[in-house]
Amino acid sequence: MSTLQRIALLLIIIGAINWGLIGFFQFDLVAALFGGQDAAVARIIYGLVGISGLIALSLLFKPSEEVETEPEKRYS
């Protein structure tokens, strides 16, 4: 996984936690921390989370890498 994909995954997790808070408690953490939904910083964060979701689409269609294992070692 590339660094860009890891950053995107981190932002997606932040967005998911924020949506969970909105859904369960009607509390928007990003808006509370950065001055409301219309604040420039909050809008940038919302935008970055959205772009991260698009980047994560590449992970959805990426074939899983096979793990190479060493042959079983036999001790006598």
Rank of each mutant, 00 (worst) to 15 (best):
S58I: 13
I55H: 02
G47T: 14
R43N: 08
V30H: 01
L57H: 02
V41G: 00
F34E: 03
A31V: 08
I13N: 07
A8Q: 02
L59Q: 13
L21D: 07
I22G: 01
I14W: 00
G53I: 07
W19K: 13
I7N: 10
I7Y: 08
G53P: 05
F61W: 12
G47F: 08
R43Y: 03
I55G: 02
A16C: 04
S58E: 08
L57D: 04
Q37K: 14
L57G: 11
V30L: 15
F24I: 11
L29V: 15
R43F: 01
S58P: 00
L10C: 07
I17T: 10
F27R: 07
I13V: 13
G35D: 09
I7Q: 13
G23C: 04
L29K: 08
L29F: 14
I12R: 10
L10D: 13
R43Q: 15
I14V: 15
G36D: 08
I55M: 10
A16T: 14
L33T: 13
D28I: 05
R6T: 12
A8K: 00
F27N: 05
V30Y: 00
A31I: 09
Y46E: 05
G20N: 09
F25W: 10
L33Q: 09
R43L: 12
L11S: 02
L59N: 12
L9C: 08
F61C: 09
G35I: 08
I44M: 09
V41A: 09
L48V: 10
A39D: 14
L21K: 06
V41W: 03
A39I: 04
